[in-house]
Amino acid sequence: MANKWKYIICLTFLLLTIFFLPTKAYAHGVDIEYTSSTTIEIVAAYDTGEPMSGAQVVVYAPDDPSTPWLTGTCDDEGRFTFSPDTSKPGTWAVQVRLAGHGDIVHIPVGQDAVASGGSGGYTILQIVLMSVCVIWGIAGTALYFLRRRA
């Protein structure tokens, strides 16, 4: 009986290890960091072609669409340049306004990552409970077969 419980505990520990411990192994630690920079230039003009010189620009990142990520002004030719944070993939929004006229443009940045990174919508508590349930189910199944063999 004690062996069975050892077996179950070992199995549970093994599963927990698989589920929760990082899989990365470090030998001779080399840490290389890089920055991927993409510069985006917008050119704002009225329908007539007249550039929106000095127009107010507000940039919104996809992870916090309510809060301006960057603000600035267009130059004399209506140009504005910025480098979005590529660690925030998704649709960036750039709003340009001048004297009661304005528009907003949406620019996809790293959209592939977004498309493949969908959210399951589970809370941490739900994930933990589901993991425990699955582990307990496997352990119960193992216990069942061990009991039959005995």
């Binding site: 589970y122 739900q126 409970l129 349930c133 699955v134 189910g137």
Partner: peptide
């Protein structure tokens, strides 16, 4: 116990939409 675990898991998945 196994059935309860399975039902609980399915319920949690259903609530997580």
């Amino acid at each position: 116990a196994i059935m309860a675990v399975l039902i609980g898991t399915v319920t949690l998945i259903g609530c997580g939409g």
